[in-house]
C-alpha cells in the first residue's frame, strides 16, 4: 500500500518535472476545457506529448475527460477539476514496525545449498557482507550486500542449514541486539528469504 502511494507520488513528480509542466498547468487553469490538439498548438509541442500529459493527469484524478462528438469523429476535452496538487509523504509510515513485530516470530535458518557467500569481518564476530548469486550459466548474476553491524551480528548467529529453526527474536537475543534494530534486521531477513538464502518455517 505504502509502495503504491510512493509510486503515485513519483508519477506526479515525473510529469511535474517536465519543462513544459508549468505552462501546461497554466493553460488548464485558465481554460474552461481544452483538447489535446488545442493544447499542443498553444504550447508548440507534439500532440502526442500533450495527449500523454493530459491522460496522466486524468488517471491521477486532477483532470476530467469528456467525449465530445464532432461532425467528423468523437474526441476528448479535458477540464481541471482540482485546485491543488499536494505531494506529501509520511516517512514514518515506511518504518517496518508492524511487519517487524509480526516478523520477529518467524522461525528461520540458513537454507541448504543456498548460492550465497557470507564474508566474516576481519578481527570481529560479525558478517561484513553477503554475496548472492542468482540465475544460471551465462545469466548468473552476483549481488553483494554490505551489512550494517547489527545485521552482520544477526547473520553471524543465524542457525546453520541443518540446525533447528529459531525465531528472529531469539537470534537477536543471542546476538545481543535490542528491539531498536528489529526493522533493519527484518529488512535483510526478508531480502534473503526472497533470494532463497534464508529458509522460513511455515507456522
Amino acid at each position: 500500500m505504502r509502495t503504491d502511494k510512493i509510486k503515485d507520488i513519483s508519477k506526479v513528480c515525473h510529469y511535474l518535472a517536465k519543462d513544459y509542466a508549468e505552462d501546461f498547468l497554466r493553460i488548464l487553469v485558465n481554460y474552461t476545457d481544452i483538447s489535446a490538439s488545442e493544447a499542443a498548438s498553444r504550447l508548440d509541442m507534439h500532440i502526442q506529448t500533450a495527449q500523454e500529459f493530459l491522460e496522466a493527469l486524468t488517471v491521477m484524478g486532477y483532470v476530467e475527460k469528456t467525449t465530445v462528438i464532432d461532425k467528423k469523429r468523437p474526441y476528448f476535452r479535458y477540464r481541471l477539476i482540482r485546485d491543488k496538487i499536494v505531494v506529501e509523504i509520511d516517512l514514518l509510515s515506511l518504518k517496518e514496525e508492524k511487519n517487524s513485530a509480526e516478523g520477529s516470530n518467524y522461525r528461520i535458518r540458513e537454507k541448504m545449498y543456498a548460492d550465497v557467500k557470507f564474508t566474516t569481518a576481519r578481527y570481529d564476530d560479525y558478517i561484513a557482507n553477503v554475496v548472492i548469486w542468482t540465475g544460471m550459466g551465462r545469466n548468473k548474476k552476483e549481488r553483494r550486500i554490505s551489512l550494517t553491524v547489527p545485521q552482520g551480528k544477526f547473520l553471524y548467529h543465524l542457525p546453520f542449514p541443518t540446525a533447528k529453526h529459531e525465531t528472529i527474536a531469539s537470534i537477536m537475543k543471542k546476538a545481543a541486539l535490542n528491539n531498536e534494530h528489529l526493522p533493519e534486521i527484518m529488512d535483510i531477513v526478508n531480502l534473503l528469504i526472497e533470494y532463497e538464502s534464508i529458509e522460513k518455517m511455515e507456522p
Binding site: E110, M112, Y113, K117, F118, T120, D125, I127, L155, Y156, H157, L158, F160, P161, T162, A163, K174
Partner: peptide
C-alpha cells in the same frame, strides 16, 4: 553419525 551436509562458510558461535 548423520550425513545431512549443510555446509556453510559462516563461523558458528
Amino acid at each position: 553419525r548423520e550425513a545431512e551436509n549443510g555446509f556453510t562458510g559462516r563461523p558458528q558461535p
